[in-house]
Amino acid sequence: MEFRLPEISQDSENTILTLWHVTEGEKVAEGEDIAEVVTDKATFDVPAPRDGILTKIIKREGEKIVSGEVLGIIE
């Protein structure tokens, strides 16, 4: 299942993925913070949408992202 950045702001043009809290192959639980994104003045912890294993990281730390983009795959 693709895991996308949720809609966090009307103005998300300058959002950067700053940190993955988990690595590929790790188990994640629904609601667990698994990545951190940063906008101009805010940090936001992105929760896992479901239980599973983070099988693939699509967006790397330091990359720009916008709401709706795929961050990774959870199986």
């Binding site: 966090i8 609601g31 913070d33 003045k41 805010a42 940090t43 936001f44 912890d45």
Partner: peptide, 20 residues
Amino acid sequence: KRGIWVENRKIGFIGIAVKK
């Protein structure tokens, strides 16, 4: 330009975090 300004000088500063 975020923040609070008076005569083009910054007087208020914002930095937040959001979890769940």
